[in-house]
């Protein structure tokens, strides 16, 4: 009787261990998948729009300066920011340096939007 009981207990604990391992592995995989899908990737280019119209496209890997519509933009070290602006609120300056895909700088008074796009993977070959 007691022999039987012991056997059952050990089978049960072995099952629990595998249960835990499976869950941990699945959790890790989910975490990994979420990391790759949700983590913002570094952008490669900044698009500059004035009044909704694309006026310039800057490559983040190449240092550059651009003045338009009262704003002075600087690209350096893979990031872009508004160095100075003639707008009253200076919100665009305070936004700071951006470099991740999807990040934006908006200057409402001057109607300028800077948007970081794409990692540089091409979508078609000609």
């Amino acid at each position: 009787m007691s022999h039987n009981k012991k056997n059952r207990k050990s089978t049960y604990s072995l099952f629990r261990i595998w249960d835990v391992i499976v869950i941990v592995v699945v959790l890790l995989l989910v975490a990994l998948a979420l990391y790759f899908t949700l983590s913002p990737e570094k952008g490669s280019r900044a698009e500059v729009y004035v009044s909704g119209e694309k006026k310039a496209e800057l490559v983040l890997s190449k240092d550059a300066e651009l003045e338009l519509n009262g704003l002075k933009l600087i690209v350096s070290g893979g990031k872009i920011w508004v160095h100075s602006s003639d707008c009253p609120d200076k919100i665009c300056e305070k936004t700071g340096k951006i470099y991740k895909k999807g990040q934006t700088i908006v200057c409402l008074p001057n109607q300028v939007i800077v948007r970081i796009v794409g990692k540089g993977e091409v979508e078609a070959i000609s």
């Binding site: 280019r45 496209e57 794409g118 540089g120 091409v122 979508e123 078609a124 070959i125 000609s126």
Partner: peptide
């Protein structure tokens, strides 16, 4: 290989003319 971008911009790569081990030589929007 002739490409049209309909209603949004696309990043396009140009075939390397001399070395096909490269996916493309350069890219542009």
């Amino acid at each position: 290989g002739t490409i049209a971008a309909v209603n949004r911009s696309y990043l396009v790569g140009i075939t390397h003319p001399r070395n096909d081990s490269y996916e493309y030589l350069f890219s542009f929007t």
